[in-house]
Design a protein around this nucleic acid. Structure first.
Lengths: 202, 202, 202, 202
DNA sequence: AATGAATGAGCCTTCATTCAT
DNA sequence: GATGAATGAAGGCTCATTCAT
């Protein structure tokens, strides 16, 4: 018996890959199942055998992307327990992940909140909860040690990741006037200046 | 009988208002002309009398929002020629404008890039060009005077407005854990720390 | 201005007529909206402009048929207050109505209970209630006068109309071995024998 | 391990039972093979191993039901050679059979004429022919003996079985206002009154 | 016998847009 | 300017059936 999972998984992955490309090219709504069918060289029925509906394809991409990103970022924090290194590293990692996964990044940044959120499962909510808990703990430890400015959680996240997000959006849109690497370095150190503890000179 | 222009303008504005609400509630694609027709208590034909097509409604909303925002922001810069005040003021203004125009803000942040951009006219491009030129000049003057850290343009914009944008997105999504005013203040001063000239102590 | 209702009504009636023919020829489920569209020389959109969905077409046919039949039958009872004449007349009328409206009869006897009942409106329920009340009163009066055998309501209806229904079903199916008129006369007088009061000799 | 035939037959019967339930609940057309698959805890392939296609499942149910009913009814006639007993007995048997096989009765009365008839095999036609011949002979003998009113065949069948059929339909639809047993007795004796020879007093 | 992935034709319905009045 | 009936292309999804294992 041939390795059945391999055939099946290949089909599923082919559909996901095709869908990701198309969603980015034409947008989620404008992409038809028939577009996906052609691009994935699958049959309509096969697509619906693997995914309940069109939304479920987008959700699968989103979840897959989010899980990968979160896994990596937690590793970054593990290797950089101190904010002085961890904050710029997290920012650089954000940009880096997007550069390594441009299609996924573009798709996730498109913010198709409606579709994705409706399809969000309990598993995803748990994934998010864990991730949030771990990162919050990392930050709390640094604040306690006086190695991080005590900011509100809302502001902290916006300050650290907002610029990276904005930068990547511009990069993906082809609106950057210089190589992204330069801006990344500036954004990473700016993040540190913005959240460094009051006394510390940058 | 009311003056004719008023009736006409009211109809047009009613359509825009209805569409804005619906776009935010269900998304642009999921909103049908018939939805708008009902919500605006107009007829199909009437809608098409005022707007070439569905995209044109979205475009009108977008342009109206953008123009208002840009006009106000330029005024902020005029009244705050020095970066020390202008940077935090611009950040606060961003959040403030969104809080005063939540529906418009939500619509514009939804990033329906595809649809809107396709409908972008030459007039809009000119509007953008002027705005960009003026703000860039303000920044250049401050850098020359040593009142602003000399950052790449890409990084500068991401650092200053990225956090505000992220904050507003969370606010609109109802994800903030505290009143937005607190976070706004933190984000505004963080922006200054991030772009203050090297020597200056915050 | 041209008589708008006429055009509109014609379109609606054309759709109904086409659908009735097709439902009888191929069955409700096997009839597609596209079949109806072609037969009615209408556009898809036009069909959906007049009827919410496919079911609503069937429901409209059913209601129209039922209303006509009930109206006529009540008139029969008005003109035949005594059971001795009324019972056979009602039976003959049942067969007669079906012979005058064979397509409608075939459709209604097909007993697409599921589809029709789901689409049954309050108006229909009221129509049925009235009809039932009037016919029950006619019967009650005859029973009181001793002109009709006192039977349970369930049995009475089955005994009087069951044979007519069975006869028409066979006729519509082309299964009769003789002209339906002969059988109709036999069925009508049999109904009277079956429900005549105990003493009365047929 | 159970004997192989038993497993096989069980599977086949399980499919039939599941299908019968579903056909009654949702209708034949609305029941999908996948519905049957789930309800029968079988696989798609297995269903198609036992039945050529969906129609064949319905046909099998229909044939099974018809054969059982006809076998029993012929026995009733054998034990009641005289019309005076045989007619009411046949009517009672009709109702009785339906009460003992409500699911099958409901399915057969649904009158899915199109589908079932298309699948009617030569074997069934022969079965019907035999049944018809035997019952016709029974009736002919009674008419010759003067024990049954000489009615046309079409009218006779309608008069005798029409009421029973109507009664059962109402019972299955839950529309009876009293226990079916009462109405059954009335319908059975009414049938005799309707077909008793002219002279005979009921 | 059983399994379940794959197929692909086809269906109902939606919806932006047009146009006669 | 307004109305709403009409259009018809297109889309998401279903489902009976096949077939390799």
């Amino acid at each position: 018996m041939a390795p059945e999972w391999s055939t099946t998984a290949a089909r599923r992955n082919g559909i996901l890959a095709a869908a990701l490309t198309l969603f980015n090219e034409k947008g989620y709504e404008a992409t038809t199942i028939d577009d996906v069918r052609q691009a994935a060289a699958a049959s309509t029925g096969s697509i619906y055998h693997h995914f309940r509906n069109k939304q479920a394809i987008a959700a699968a991409l989103f979840v897959e992307g989010l899980a990968g990103y979160q896994r990596e970022l937690l590793e970054v924090f593990r290797q950089n327990p101190h904010a002085r290194d961890g904050v710029p590293a997290a920012v650089r990692h954000y940009v880096d992940w997007c550069m390594r996964n441009p299609a996924l990044a573009r798709f996730m940044l498109a913010g198709r909140d409606f579709e994705v959120r409706e399809a969000t499962t309990a598993a995803v909510r748990e994934m998010n909860a864990r991730f949030t808990a771990e990162t919050a703990a990392w930050r709390a430890r640094n604040v306690e040690r006086g190695e991080l400015r005590p900011l509100g959680g809302d502001a902290y996240l916006a300050i650290v990741y907002g610029p990276a997000r904005a930068l990547v959006r511009s990069w993906l849109a082809g609106r950057l006037s210089a190589p992204i690497e330069e801006a990344t370095a500036e954004v990473a150190s700016a993040a540190w200046r913005a959240v460094a503890p009051p006394g510390e000179l940058p």
